[in-house]
Computed example of a mutant assay.
Amino acid sequence: MSGTGPARRLPLIAVVGPTGSGKSELGIALAHRLDGEVINADAMQFYRGMDIGTAKLPVEDREGVPHHLLDILDVREEASVARYQEYSRQVITDIRARGNVPILVGGSGLYVRAALDELEFPPTDAAVRARLETENDENGPAALRDRLAVVDPVSAERLGDERRVIRALEVHEITGRPFSSFMPQRVYHQPAVQIGLQVDREVLKERLAKRVHLMVEAGLEDEVRMLDTQGLRQGRTAARALGYSQFLRVLDGEWSTAEAAADTIAATRRFARRQLTWFRADQRIHWVDWRHSELVELAERAVRSGGALS
């Protein structure tokens, strides 16, 4: 693909929606039409070797479209939204420099927002956090919450668990700013259009069940076994991935394959519901019926009319 004048003027594109709705396929189709390159925005697809259980498209199914930010972590590493923001924006800049259109594809809502929106990440300080954790252990959470109510009443009202209260006090101590001042706004970092795949929930439920069974048939248990030798259990992010946490229990003899598959299906359905709730809250998304006979045309039209640069 080579860049063109019109491609340079198109906005940043994001294809979003619940797992199993066909985002990857739509992203590729738009890339062909718009001189695009795909940027992964699925947190679990960052991991090398986590292929079957994340429905990662094999290279041969990417139809020659460049894909970025896949296979960038090993399973021991923790995924970071702040690092993703840095990496994704650099990739966006590089794609633009080639005259092509960046197309984010994925259902990890916070990662999508990190790439798209004005989203500032407050710093951390391990020593400050450790001291606050010690105070919490010695004096109880009420004292810390009272302190937070003085310096950041908005956060004190919003935050429920002790860990988040400690984090809010840590941020205030480091920056002098209330943690609530870092809350994201729905303001694009650069012109963008989001295309959301609108699904039939009952059809999606059955599709997700079928997909999990196909993953099991394709060797998900063997994939988990292989990753276990590479430190999967030590990964704070990867070990919690749908399917992987369940099949670790198969390896441990706690569950049968059927039990792990059933739990994975239930967990995946719950995850899809949470994704829909997340994306429905963003009024900027252009929703398109996932099964529409002219899905790609409608999505392209939304891109060209919804956010083309002057």
Rank of each mutant, 00 (worst) to 15 (best):
G219Y: 13
E135Y: 14
A55Q: 12
R131G: 10
A79K: 06
G196V: 08
E37C: 00
G53P: 02
E297K: 15
V250A: 07
S21T: 11
D200N: 14
A308D: 06
I52L: 13
R76E: 08
A218K: 12
V105K: 00
P141M: 04
R304H: 02
P141C: 03
I92L: 13
G231Q: 13
V288C: 09
D289L: 03
G3I: 02
V303L: 06
W255N: 03
Y87C: 07
Q246I: 15
V224T: 09
V151R: 11
S24W: 00
A143Q: 12
R129C: 12
H67K: 13
M215D: 08
A126G: 10
R207F: 03
G106I: 07
F247M: 05
D146F: 11
E157C: 02
A260C: 02
L159F: 05
R249T: 12
L73H: 04
L232G: 04
A267Q: 10
D35G: 10
G235H: 09
R273T: 12
V16M: 07
E135H: 14
Y244R: 11
T257N: 08
R96W: 06
L276H: 02
Q185Y: 03
A192T: 09
M44S: 13
M183W: 15
L144F: 03
S108M: 02
A302V: 02
I195G: 00
R96L: 01
I92M: 12
L214T: 14
